[in-house]
């Protein structure tokens, strides 16, 4: 009796996980930036690990848990390597400084742009006001 209940529980969560895997793959197709894709792939990996662990209980095969561990390790390594490589490629293309200076550079650069745009808008407004005044 309980075994049937366990089977239903495990199978139901496996089906839900399969739907969730497809739903998170959608984000990895759509995602506009590279970090969105990395996030979605990382989460897909999490779901797959959960599914493998549930399968190991459902099929009563203990070695599948080892597969879980290896999968978790490889997905973590993949995220780390991809992040480092893409940061390096981006900074090389932009010719920015590495490390935390890059974030500061990025933000100050944007700040200058915003300030320039504000100044331009203010000038435009001033000019318009002067024209109105005239």
């Amino acid at each position: 009796m309980t075994e049937q209940a366990y089977d239903i529980l495990l199978l139901g969560s496996l089906i839900i996980l399969a739907v969730l895997i497809i739903a998170s793959m959608i984000r990895s197709f759509l995602g506009p930036g590279i970090s969105d894709r990395i996030i979605a792939i990382n989460m897909t990996g999490t779901m797959v690990i959960t599914a493998i662990a549930i399968l190991s209980v459902f099929l009563e095969e203990d070695y599948l848990v080892d597969v879980c561990l290896i999968y978790a390790m490889i997905s973590f390594l993949g995220v780390v390597v991809l992040c480092k490589v893409y940061t390096g490629v981006y900074l090389q293309k932009k010719k920015l400084k590495p490390d935390f200076g890059a974030i500061a550079d990025n933000l100050t650069h944007q700040g200058e742009e915003c300030r320039e745009r504000d100044v331009r808008d203010n000038k435009g407004r001033h000019a318009a006001g002067e024209e109105d005044g005239k």
Binding site: I34, S35, Y90, N106
Partner: peptide, 8 residues
């Protein structure tokens, strides 16, 4: 990932 996002 957050560091990549903040830099890029």
């Amino acid at each position: 990932i957050s560091r990549l996002e903040a830099m890029t």
